[in-house]
């Protein structure tokens, strides 16, 4: 395989796994539910997107023929991640979860 292409795939894979890990670290160590919501919905989605693009490049160049169908996964994740984040946030607000004392502004009372 072309070394430049292999390097690009490696970088994309490492970036993707790194973002996935950062999302989970955020889930574990941030102080309250609303801040934890930020890690998985965004960093993890971007991580999977990057990993999948690396996989797409690999299969397109290694096996004959264009292989674009992996694109469906990040597309679907980018459409659904905001929806699940919003519905989880709504349920958390309805349950009156506590925010960290430093938070400015108040959640609405549902």
């Amino acid at each position: 395989m072309n070394p430049w292409l292999e390097g690009l795939i490696c970088v994309l894979l490492l970036v993707g796994s790194g973002f996935t890990l950062v999302g989970s670290i955020g889930l574990l160590r941030l102080p309250d539910f609303f801040t934890r919501l930020h890690g998985p919905t965004k960093a993890t989605t971007l991580g999977v997107g990057s990993t999948v693009i690396a996989s797409m490049l690999y299969f397109t160049t290694q096996h004959d023929g264009l292989s674009l169908h992996e694109l469906l996964i990040p597309l679907f994740l980018f459409i659904t991640a905001p929806v699940s984040a919003q519905i989880l946030c709504k349920s958390a607000m309805q349950q009156r979860l506590k925010t960290t004392p430093k938070t400015r502004g108040k959640p609405w009372q549902l």
Partner: peptide, 10 residues
């Protein structure tokens, strides 16, 4: 929601 730093809640 996708632009990080913010999540639209309600």
């Amino acid at each position: 929601s996708l632009t990080p730093g913010t999540v639209s809640a309600e």
